[in-house]
Structure formats: structure tokens, C-alpha cells
């Protein structure tokens, strides 16, 4: 909501500079200029969680409460994961199943998060080319098509400026949580736990 108000004000001041008609609030919310700002943030958030969910299967960080215990890297055994014959009575039915259903269910979180990332990145490219072309026409430049846009500086600047902030946040969280504590938070080790303890979350 705040983004819509601030975004419209910025967009309108740009239009005023160019001597063009101002847009109303709903007109702005339905514009490609607003949509590209929204979707570029969505894709980076979903990418962040997708990578976090899948990379922590193999990558461990000694001393981090976000990491699994040392020596458990990888997809682990069927017994640890309670799948197939090791499934309990309360296990989801697709965990008890074997074959493709177990395989699909075992990756469903990553698949859905990754799928949403791809869709919102695609939406960013579609809304982005519309907003970019509007700006180009205002600057008396010929519009570009989608295939030119996805290799353009505008598309990658929008994409990478979001990625860098997400990766910085994740990396600093992984490292800071080794030495710092937040009492009661499930993302933190219990306050009195040693710095070298790995894979013990408060909760």
C-alpha cells in the first residue's frame, strides 16, 4: 500500500517533468511500472527461500543453529527421513508410498518455491519490458522486444540489486547466529549454548 502511494508520487513527478498527463491511484496500481517493482521483489524472495531450503541439504555451517549437524550433509537415509517402509502411521500417504510419488513429495517444497520463483521472474520480465518501453518512448527511443529486454542492463540491474540484498541478508544471518543469540527465537540457539554447537535451535 505504502509502496503504491510512494511509487505513484514518483511516477507522477516524472510525468510532470515530461509534460504528460498524471495518473490516478488505481491507474498506477494497474500499471506495468508498479507491477515490475512488485514482481522483482517477489522473485528474489522466493529465490532466497528456494536456495536456502535446497542448499542447506548439502551445505553445513559449523556453529550455526540454521545448519544440520556435521556429517549429515546430503538427502540422508530413508530411516532418518521416515519414508517408504520407515513411515509411521501419522506420515503423509505419499511419504509411505514408493516410486515417483515419494520422489515428488520428497522434493515438493523446493519444487513449489522454485516454481513460484520462476513464474515471478517471468512476470518481472513481462512487466519490466512494458515499463521499460514506456520509458523509452517517453525518451524518444524505439521500443525493444522481450528477447532484447531479458539481456538488457535494465532487467539485470533490477534483478541483481534484489539478489545481492537477499544473499547478503542470508549470509550475515548464518554467520551472526553462530555468535549472537535471541532469547526465545527458534532461529537462535538457546542463550547459554556454546558458539561451536551446531544444529540446536531454541524452539
Amino acid at each position: 500500500m505504502g509502496q503504491a502511494f510512494a511509487g505513484r508520487a514518483e511516477f507522477n513527478s516524472q510525468l510532470a517533468v515530461d509534460g504528460l498527463a498524471q495518473v490516478g491511484f488505481w491507474q498506477y496500481v494497474s500499471s506495468s511500472d508498479f507491477a515490475v517493482d512488485v514482481t522483482e521483489n517477489w522473485q528474489s524472495e522466493y529465490l532466497q527461500f528456494f536456495l536456502y531450503i535446497t542448499a542447506t541439504v548439502w551445505l553445513l555451517q559449523r556453529g550455526s543453529p540454521e545448519s544440520k549437524k556435521m556429517g549429515t550433509a546430503g538427502t540422508e537415509g530413508d530411516k532418518d527421513q521416515r519414508v517408504g517402509p520407515h513411515a509411521g502411521p501419522d506420515s503423509p500417504s505419499w511419504a509411505r508410498a514408493t516410486g515417483w510419488r515419494q520422489g515428488l513429495f520428497s522434493r515438493s517444497l523446493g519444487l513449489v518455491m522454485g516454481g513460484i520463483f520462476v513464474l515471478s521472474w517471468l512476470a518481472q520480465s513481462i512487466t519490466g519490458v512494458a515499463a521499460y518501453n514506456e520509458q523509452r518512448l517517453r525518451d524518444l527511443q524505439a521500443p525493444v522486444d522481450w528477447s532484447q529486454y531479458v539481456v538488457s542492463a535494465d532487467f539485470w540491474a533490477r534483478t541483481l540489486q534484489n539478489w545481492q540484498s537477499e544473499f547478503l541478508a542470508i549470509a550475515s544471518m548464518a554467520v551472526l547466529s553462530i555468535y549472537l543469540r535471541q532469547r526465545g527465537s527458534p532461529e537462535s540457539k538457546p542463550v547459554g549454548t556454546s558458539h561451536t554447537a551446531t544444529g540446536i535451535e531454541g524452539g
Binding site: 504528460l20 518501453n133 518512448l137 524518444l140 524505439a142
Partner: peptide, 29 residues
Amino acid sequence: TDVHGEAMAVFAQDTVFLAHFPSGWKVTA
């Protein structure tokens, strides 16, 4: 003619740029 919010109309020997106003399309260049 290409429309992306604003518009560009290409003729054989001229190109005209337009913007949409409440009163309709107007020539900006």
C-alpha cells in the same frame, strides 16, 4: 504503430511520438 503506455507511429519518412491525455492521443514529437 507501437504502443507501450506512450506510442510511436512510424511512417516511411517520418516518426511521430504520442502520449495519451484525458482528451485522447496527442503528438509529443
